[in-house]
Computed example of a mutant assay.
Amino acid sequence: MHNSWLLLGWVIAFPAIMYLFFVAQGTDGPATADAIISIGIGVMGALFVCLYLFGDQLAGDLEDRRYAAYRSMPLSPAADLAGRMAAGLVLATAAFAATILAGVATGAEYSLRGPESIPIVVVAGLLTCVFWMVVAIPIVLAADNESVAEWVSSLVAVAAFILTGFNGALPAQSPIEGELLNYLPNALPTRLLVYHLVPTENWTELGAAPPAMPTGLEFVALLAGYAIVALVAGTVLLNRYAYDRGWWP
């Protein structure tokens, strides 16, 4: 139990520590630039929770054969998935919030673009976490080993962060060019959060553009589409491989 709490604390605190380490190197940029960096790292922390911790709990239940008992219970795979996701959302929110608090403590400048920014930020974060927790399910099932699943899920989170330039927060550091960063399921929510939480219009000067920032509700709708498809896929996978009940509840 003691080691579990230490691991949980480390996973939640890691992105904030990473941001503080980055700032300690000296960014020599405006406070809004630090805010952009903190959001990119904070989203990485949330994705790490969604992939690593969510996947670790599922892998542990499979490896310890708990689903043999679950199959005899009147438990819906959708309800099982919802319960796991609720816990994952709390932890992912904690990891992201800790990083933003670290940004505030070091002088990073944040500001809501308007009243509409609150629901957009909340919904974008929720939908993103839902999508990435489902991504952990096929990783766990394919690995069929808790340690391997932990390693692969961690690699996915880190690779997505690096290849998209701080999850799309700093496109110049990504090998991906053009509008694609506004459509990837890790970069799109990051860029939405940056647009609604960082008080500036000089995106090019701060390294956040090009491409142009995603500003329309169609981008939120795209995230919703990703999440809905993921929820259906996650329920199907649990029903078939964890509960052994066929391809649909």
Rank of each mutant, 00 (worst) to 15 (best):
V134D: 04
T99Q: 05
L163T: 14
F96Q: 02
A102L: 01
A94C: 07
N182M: 05
G114F: 09
S154A: 14
L184S: 06
G125Y: 02
G83C: 03
A149Q: 13
V198N: 04
L192E: 09
R71C: 09
E177K: 15
L126E: 04
E201C: 01
W203I: 09
A143W: 10
A149S: 15
L141V: 01
M133P: 00
L127P: 02
C129H: 14
F166R: 00
M133W: 13
P77F: 10
L181I: 05
G107K: 00
S147G: 10
T106L: 06
V198K: 13
I120L: 13
V90Q: 02
P185A: 13
L126H: 04
L197R: 10
V135L: 12
A95V: 00
V156F: 06
N202F: 01
I139F: 14
L89D: 08
I176D: 07
E177F: 09
A143L: 05
A169V: 11
Y67N: 14
A98M: 10
F131Y: 14
G207V: 11
A169S: 15
S72K: 04
I120S: 04
S153N: 15
A87F: 11
G178K: 11
A149E: 11
N202Q: 15
I176Q: 04
L155K: 12
V134A: 09
A149C: 07
M73T: 11
I118K: 01
V121I: 14
A94D: 06
A143P: 08
I100Y: 06
M133V: 01
V104W: 04
A82T: 10
Y70V: 10
S153P: 07
N182C: 02
I139K: 02
I139S: 11
L180T: 15
P171Q: 10
L101P: 01
P210E: 06
P119L: 08
R71E: 10
S117E: 02
L197C: 08
N145I: 08
L163S: 10
V122C: 13
S117Q: 02
R84C: 00
A159Y: 12
E109M: 10
V123M: 12
A98S: 11
D144S: 12
D80G: 05
A212L: 10
L141N: 00
V122R: 07
V140G: 12
G125W: 06
E179T: 11
F96Y: 14
A102D: 08
W151P: 00
P211S: 06
A209P: 04
V194D: 03
